[in-house]
Structure formats: C-alpha cells, structure tokens
Design a protein around this nucleic acid. Structure first.
Lengths: 222, 222
DNA sequence: TAGATTGTTAATCGATTAACAATC
DNA sequence: TAGATTGTTAATCGATTAACAATC
C-alpha cells in the first residue's frame, strides 16, 4: 500500500472522487474498467488517473485495465473507510443539526459519539440518536470516549478557544465549519479541513458576475 | 476593474478568503496594511497577494501599502457582494433546512426567494420566513421570480433530472450539495460549485490515517 | 531625500499531460 | 501471437515565489 512517500494535496482531494465514481461503476454492474473509460466519465485525463494511482501502487493489469471492485476497495482502504474513528460535534445549531443526521458517518470511516452545545436549553434534546450534552461535560466525555475528530459548527468568535480546548483533549482532526480559519502548523500530527460555505457561494457568484473572466472553459457565452 | 482577461481558478478561490481577512482587519480598526502583513496573517506569501490582486488592478500605493477599507470594497465589488441575485433552494431536508436559515445570503450578494421540496407533507411549512413549495410550482414560480442560482440539497438520484429541469428554466448557477457531480461544459454560461461534504470528510480521514504521507507540512509527528 | 512597498517581470517549482516501453 | 492498456519517464504547462525597478 505504500510506494511514494509524498502524496500531493491535489491527489488526496481526488481520491474520494475516484472512490465515488468507482462505486457508481460498480453499481452499474461493470467489473472491469480502463483508465480511459474512467477518465471519460470523470472528465479528467487517463494519464492523471494512472499517475495518481501509482502514488500508492500498481492496481491495474497491463493490457486489461482495472478490476473495479478491487480498485475501489484499495482506495477505500487508503482513505480508511473501514475505520471507525470516533468524532464529536460541537454546536447543535442549524448546521450542526443537519450534519448530525444528514451524513452517514459509517460510510466514511467515522462514528459520531457525542454532540455538544453551549446553549443549556438544547442540552438533553436528542439528535440522530444522540443526546446534546453541555460543554461542561466535554472534558470528562473525551476522557472516556477518546474522540479523534471534532466537527465544529460554532460561531467564529468561539472557534479559537474551543479549538484550543479540544487540542488539549487530544483531538487530532478538525472538520471546521465555523467562519474562522484554523491554521495549526504548530501542533504536529493535527490536521484540518476548513469548509467555508460562504467562500464557496462567493466563488459561485464571482463566476456568475464575471462571465468573461471564467477560467478553463473553452466555450464562453459571448 | 478589468485588467487581465483570464483569472485562474486558484485566484478565484482565494478572493473570498482575502475578503474575509480584510473584514477582520477592518474590524480591528486597522486602516492600512502591507502585502507582507496581510500575508503573515493568512499564512501565504506577499508575492501571491500582489500577484493575485494585479489580475484586477493596482489597488495599492507604492511605499505605503493598501487601504484596508478600499481594498475590501474593491474585492467585494469583484465578487459581487452588493448584488442581489435571486436563488431557489431545492430539497428541504436536513441540509436544505440548515442552508435556508444558517446563511446570511445578503452578505454574499444573493437572496433566497423560493424553497421547494418533492415531499408534499413539507409543502406549506415555513423555513426562514419562506414557505416550502411543491415541485409542481417550480415552473410558474421561476417565470415570475426569475432565479439565477439553484441550491441543490436533493438525493443523488434526483439530481440529473432536477438539474436539467432548472437549466430549462434559465438557472445560470448551481450550488450543488447532492452527491451527484454536475459537469455542464455543454451549457455555455452556466457555472457550478459542487460541494461534496463526504469528499471533504474523507480527505480529512485520509490525513489522519496516513500521517507519514502528509503533504506540505514540514514537521511530521514522528 | 531616504525608506518602504508596490506592480511586474523573471526564475523556480510542482502538477498535468504526453509518450512509450513493459507486459498481460 | 497481436492488441490493449498499464506503469513510468520525459515534456509541457501553469502556478507560485523571488527579485527588482518604479514610485509614493
């Protein structure tokens, strides 16, 4: 499973997409696929697929292609979809509520084990089978459940403090939906995904408002 | 406002982040900033900032730096935050609900004008001040409200059809949260932001599960 | 004026694509 | 065997960084 030591961020971001598309291909009952066929589906180049996969190993067979089920399972293994990483969700507001019930965490290799909110009125209510807990319980809960991931659905101003508190509780990964940018290059072994929904919407609006400046699209409407 | 004709995707994705950080700087009461100071805050290089900004124009003053309020307002103008693009949200499930009340659309240059769901039981209920409408009303509603953006919070299997239906109703932009990948290089002038929350979570898990293969971090924990 | 910092060009770096020998 | 398609190296392309002259 290990070949090259450095895997670029661009490759990492494409792995889940490969996993997703291979799942679709598999669901269609196709058992064998070439890099060209997969590339056509995904609107990327066959070269890129082969180059990407070879960061991890030779999963294909020359002259034949790739076994869909096998390749998907290999990529799943690399991503760790069979793991069971415990996660806590902080902030049971609108977005927190949605994320606690909308996502099938098991599919991604994690498990939601605790939900917390600073608002005492929410404490005790149930969300996706879990009770919302008080922030004062965070320390004791983490000591017994030992979560690895924290999902932050809290306001910007609370993020720095909560983040530091969680780092002290051995949280290794932040899935951050607060409007605050977590940059942790100081804490070794800790990883972050900042998901800025507002940034994404703004990027979309930029493309609407600046049709002439659209990148990498051959055909423009004027 | 126009200088270079082609603006790369990388630059576009950074614009909202500049806008965000400049907002923070402004809130701190700082009126003047150099590319170096801003770069330090954002953990990027000063070169990149100057290079990025010069896609749009010379907003700074040599020997002095940038006027924070002015630069922020210029970038806001480029992003179109003062626009009022009408948007419809399709799918009032958990995520749809969260997106209809959690985001301050006005801040990003849009306005939510309609919410739709295929489930007739939800029709008529209120969400963030708007009634959930039946999918059968979609055509008549779009003809009067003329939405530009569609926010898709629907299941994967419904996405292709809904997407085609909306394209026929002159929707120019898709903010897509369904697990389906929209690729519209055929329809000129239409733009897409595919937000795959699952992919983001998987990328985070990859980084947890493969600490040795982490990219672009000088210090690894072993 | 001298110092600071931009705008912009040139150099470097990394990622994508093309090519092709290896091989099933 | 011949045809197909991989794994991998080399060429190209684009994005980031460095350098510096222009100038406030």
């Amino acid at each position: 499973m290990s070949k090259n030591d450095k895997v670029s961020n661009s490759v990492i971001r494409r792995l889940p997409r490969y996993y997703r598309f291979l799942g679709e291909v598999l669901a269609e009952g196709i058992s064998k696929i070439s890099s060209r066929e997969l590339a056509d589906r995904m609107k990327i180049t066959a070269s890129q697929i082969r180059q990407d996969l070879n960061c991890f190993g030779g999963f294909g067979q020359q002259g034949y292609g790739y076994n869909v089920a096998e390749l998907r399972s290999e990529i799943g293994e690399i991503l760790g979809v069979n793991k069971d990483l415990p996660a806590v969700l902080i902030g049971a507001g609108n977005l927190g509520k949605a994320l606690s019930v909308h996502l099938d965490y098991k599919k991604y290799g994690c498990r939601l084990c605790g939900i917390f909110d600073a608002n005492e009125e929410l404490v005790g209510t149930m969300l996706g089978g879990l009770p919302v807990r008080s922030m004062s319980e965070l320390e004791s809960f983490c000591e017994s459940c030992r979560p690895v991931i924290a999902i932050l659905c809290i306001p910007r101003e609370e993020a720095p403090d909560v983040c530091e508190r969680l780092t002290g509780l051995d949280i290794k990964a932040f899935w951050n939906f607060s409007h605050y940018d977590i940059t942790l290059e100081n804490i070794p072994g800790t990883v972050v995904e900042n998901v800025h929904l507002g940034d994404s919407l703004m990027a979309l609006c930029y493309k609407i408002n600046n049709p002439g400046k659209k990148p990498e699209t051959e055909e423009s409407e004027q």
